[in-house]
Every structure is written in C-alpha cells, then in structure tokens.
C-alpha cells in the first residue's frame, strides 16, 4: 500500500476478510483516497456501519469507527451527528443493510437532510449470509432464496434517496474508480445528506449464481452496462433497460438538520 495511505488503515488488521476480487476493498480504498485528498482531520472523522461483509470496512479504517447492528448505522450516526456536529460522519453500508432492514432509517435520514455521507456497497446480494436476494437484486437474477429467479423488483437507490429528500445523490462503480473518488469527495464536501450508490461486485455469491464466475466477468458487465447521466438523458427507456447510469443525479442547497437544531436551541434560550 502507498505510504501516504497507510495511516488511514489499521494495518495490523489487514489483509481483510473479503474474498478475492470482492469490490468492497476497492470502495474502501476509494473512500480513504477521497479522505486523503480532502485532508480531513482523522480524529474528527467518524465512520459508522451496520452488519454485512461491507459493514466490516470501518474495522480496517483508522478513524472513530462504530460497527452497529444490521440496518441501523444511520440511526446511530444520527445520534452522533446531533450530539457533536463537528464530527464528519460517513456511513458505509451494504445494499441489504441500507435498503431492506435499514430502509426506514435511510429515507428518514435523507428527509432530515442531516449531514451524513452514506456510501452503499451495492453488490445486489446479501453477501455475508451466503447469497440471498436483497431489495437491490435485479428481477430474474438468481439467489439462494430465489432459486427460480427473483420476482421482486429492485429499488433505484438514487431515485429513492432523492425523493426522500437527500440533497446530494450520485452513483459510481468499482470499475470507474477515479470518478468514484471524485464523487466521494463531492459527497463529503456537501453539507447535508449525501448518498453515493456504488455498484459493487460479489463474485462469490452473486457472480457464481448468475453465470459470472469471476470478478473479471462481473467487472466486464459493469463496463458494458454503464452509461453516464448525460448520455442516459438522450436514451429511451428501452435503451436504458439493464443499464447502470453513473454520475451525479442531484445536488441542492437546503438547510442542514443540525444547523436547524442550533436555531432551535437559540430560540429556546430566548434568542430570535
């Protein structure tokens, strides 16, 4: 590992537990590089996760790290940010962690526009429990609990976040890493709730069940299916089917939650 990145890792905990070719390591690397580019104060950064393979990431990262319960990272993170708005908060979460069991916390954190950067390690599957379908598993894909093909429709996390009130929304992939780092930097600089949906690969469970036996095949799929927001805007719904639209979807300035609460304190204390 690059010397200047070493201080961001708990090097004695590496190598990480992730399978060969698992995209979680790529996203974690991108997060750390974005933090390094922004020169954030390490002791004022707090990284919170839920449960899942992806949620193990904070354990390898040398910051204030909190590995909570399945789906609840945003709830814990909300308490931290409310109590100490000076801390920079990242939530690292899996697609199941974020959008299934944690779906309620997700939409409400977005609605409040609390200053938390949420990065979803979206591998379209429950990795840690061995490959069951998640709310992000595409229709007709196979999973251990969808042996005949998935009949559930999947979320579009970016649309979900935006309509819930997130004020920065973007999608990146583990193939387009330089762009991913830029997006993470923007999300971190954004004041308010930012969501980054990162299209990720789980070769072990999603790949094997869906005729992509190697991480390379899975990466190729991302490469083939990705289109930028700009080109997507010129494509028909039919042309867009199955495509991964990447880039920034939404950015707006809206009062941030803890700043609003600071005003509540002022009011309560008799200011105006």
């Amino acid at each position: 590992m690059r010397k200047e990145l070493q201080k961001y890792f708990r090097n004695d905990k590496l190598p990480h537990i992730w399978c060969p070719g698992c995209g979680h390591g790529i996203i974690t690397g991108a997060v750390v590089r974005a933090i390094d580019n922004l020169k954030l104060n390490q002791s004022k950064v707090c990284i919170v996760s839920g449960i899942g393979c992806s949620s193990r990431a904070p354990g390898y990262m040398n910051f204030n790290t909190l590995h909570t319960t399945h789906g609840r990272a945003l709830a814990f993170a909300t308490g931290i940010k409310m109590a100490n708005p000076d801390l920079k908060i990242l939530v690292l979460t899996g697609d199941g962690d974020c959008s299934a069991i944690g779906g309620n916390h997700f939409i409400h954190a977005a609605r409040r526009n609390i200053d938390i950067t949420t990065i979803v390690f979206n591998n379209s599957i429950y990795g840690m429990t061995g490959g069951q379908y998640s709310p992000m598993t595409p229709k007709a894909a196979f999973a251990t609990t969808a042996p005949y093909g998935n009949i559930d429709r999947n979320f579009d996390l970016c649309k979900l976040a935006q309509s819930a009130g997130a004020t920065y929304v973007a999608r990146g992939t583990v193939f387009h890493v330089p762009q991913l780092i830029k997006l993470i930097e923007k999300a971190l600089k954004h004041k308010g709730f930012s969501l980054l949906d990162v299209v990720d690969i789980c070769p072990t469970y999603f790949g094997r069940r869906n005729k992509m036996s190697s991480p390379i095949a899975m990466m190729n799929k991302i490469r083939e299916m990705s289109v930028t927001v700009r080109s997507a805007s010129k494509m028909s719904e039919e042309e867009l089917s199955g495509k991964i639209v990447i880039g920034e979807f939404h950015e707006e300035r809206v009062p941030e939650y803890t700043e609003e609460y600071a005003k509540v304190i002022e009011k309560a204390q008799g200011g105006n």
């Binding site: 909570t68 945003l74 709830a75 814990f76 308490g79 931290i80 409310m82 801390l87 309620n104 916390h105």
Partner: peptide
C-alpha cells in the same frame, strides 16, 4: 422514525 432508531441514536450520542 421508530424506537429502534431512538435506541441507536442515544447510543451514538453517548459515544460522544
């Protein structure tokens, strides 16, 4: 948004 979240939030706040 619910009691699960409330419990999570107070743990987070206590950590600060």
């Amino acid at each position: 948004e619910d009691e699960i979240a409330s419990m999570g939030a107070i743990i987070g706040a206590s950590l600060t």
